[in-house]
Lab assay of single mutants.
Amino acid sequence: NQASVVANQLIPISTALTLVMMRSEVVTPVGIPAEDIPRLVSMTVNRAVPLGTTLMPDMVKGYA
Rank of each mutant, 00 (worst) to 15 (best):
N1I: 15
N1E: 15
N1W: 08
N1D: 15
Q2L: 14
Q2F: 12
Q2H: 11
A3I: 07
S4K: 01
S4R: 02
S4Y: 03
V5C: 06
V5R: 02
V5E: 01
V5I: 14
V5S: 01
V6K: 02
V6C: 05
A7L: 03
A7V: 06
A7I: 04
A7Y: 03
A7C: 04
N8M: 06
N8G: 07
Q9L: 09
Q9R: 13
Q9N: 06
Q9S: 08
L10F: 14
L10V: 09
L10M: 09
I11L: 09
I11K: 01
I11A: 02
I11R: 00
I11D: 02
P12L: 07
P12I: 04
P12A: 09
P12G: 06
P12V: 04
I13W: 15
I13A: 13
I13K: 15
I13R: 11
I13T: 15
I13Q: 14
I13V: 12
I13F: 11
I13E: 15
T15R: 07
T15E: 07
T15C: 06
T15M: 07
T15G: 04
A16P: 15
A16M: 11
A16Q: 09
A16R: 11
L17G: 02
L17M: 07
L17K: 00
L17P: 03
T18S: 10
T18W: 03
T18Q: 09
T18P: 00
L19E: 10
L19T: 09
V20M: 14
V20I: 13
V20D: 14
M21Q: 04
M21D: 04
M21E: 03
M22L: 11
M22W: 03
R23H: 05
R23G: 11
R23Y: 05
S24P: 13
S24D: 09
S24M: 08
S24K: 08
E25R: 06
E25L: 11
V26L: 13
V26W: 08
V26F: 12
V26I: 12
V26H: 12
V27E: 00
V27T: 11
T28M: 10
T28R: 04
T28I: 08
T28E: 15
P29A: 04
P29I: 06
P29L: 04
P29E: 05
V30N: 11
V30W: 10
V30T: 10
V30R: 05
V30F: 12
V30K: 07
V30Q: 11
G31A: 03
G31S: 01
I32F: 02
I32M: 02
I32L: 06
I32C: 04
P33S: 12
P33Y: 12
A34R: 05
A34H: 07
A34L: 03
A34P: 07
A34T: 13
E35L: 12
E35M: 10
E35F: 08
D36Q: 12
D36L: 10
D36V: 08
I37W: 03
I37S: 04
I37L: 12
I37T: 07
I37D: 01
P38T: 12
R39M: 11
R39H: 08
R39I: 09
L40F: 02
L40C: 03
L40A: 00
L40H: 00
V41G: 00
V41S: 02
V41N: 03
V41I: 15
S42V: 03
S42Q: 09
S42W: 10
M43D: 02
M43E: 04
M43L: 15
M43F: 15
M43H: 09
T44F: 12
T44K: 10
V45K: 00
V45Y: 00
V45I: 07
V45S: 05
N46L: 12
N46I: 08
N46C: 10
N46S: 13
R47M: 13
R47P: 02
R47I: 13
R47D: 05
R47Y: 08
A48Y: 14
V49W: 03
V49M: 04
V49E: 01
P50A: 12
P50D: 15
P50L: 10
P50K: 14
P50F: 06
P50S: 09
P50Q: 11
L51I: 15
G52S: 05
G52E: 03
G52D: 14
G52M: 05
G52L: 04
T53S: 10
T53C: 07
T53E: 07
T53W: 13
T53V: 15
T53G: 11
T54S: 04
T54E: 02
T54A: 07
T54K: 04
T54N: 02
L55Q: 01
L55W: 02
L55F: 15
L55H: 01
L55E: 00
L55M: 13
M56N: 05
M56Y: 09
M56V: 08
M56D: 04
M56Q: 13
M56I: 12
P57Q: 07
P57C: 07
P57F: 05
P57E: 07
P57Y: 06
P57W: 06
D58W: 11
D58M: 11
D58Y: 09
D58Q: 09
D58G: 10
D58R: 06
D58E: 12
M59F: 14
M59N: 06
M59R: 00
V60F: 05
V60H: 02
V60K: 01
V60R: 00
V60A: 02
K61E: 14
K61T: 14
G62K: 06
G62M: 07
G62Y: 08
G62P: 05
G62T: 04
G62L: 06
Y63A: 04
Y63E: 03
Y63C: 04
A64L: 12
A64P: 14
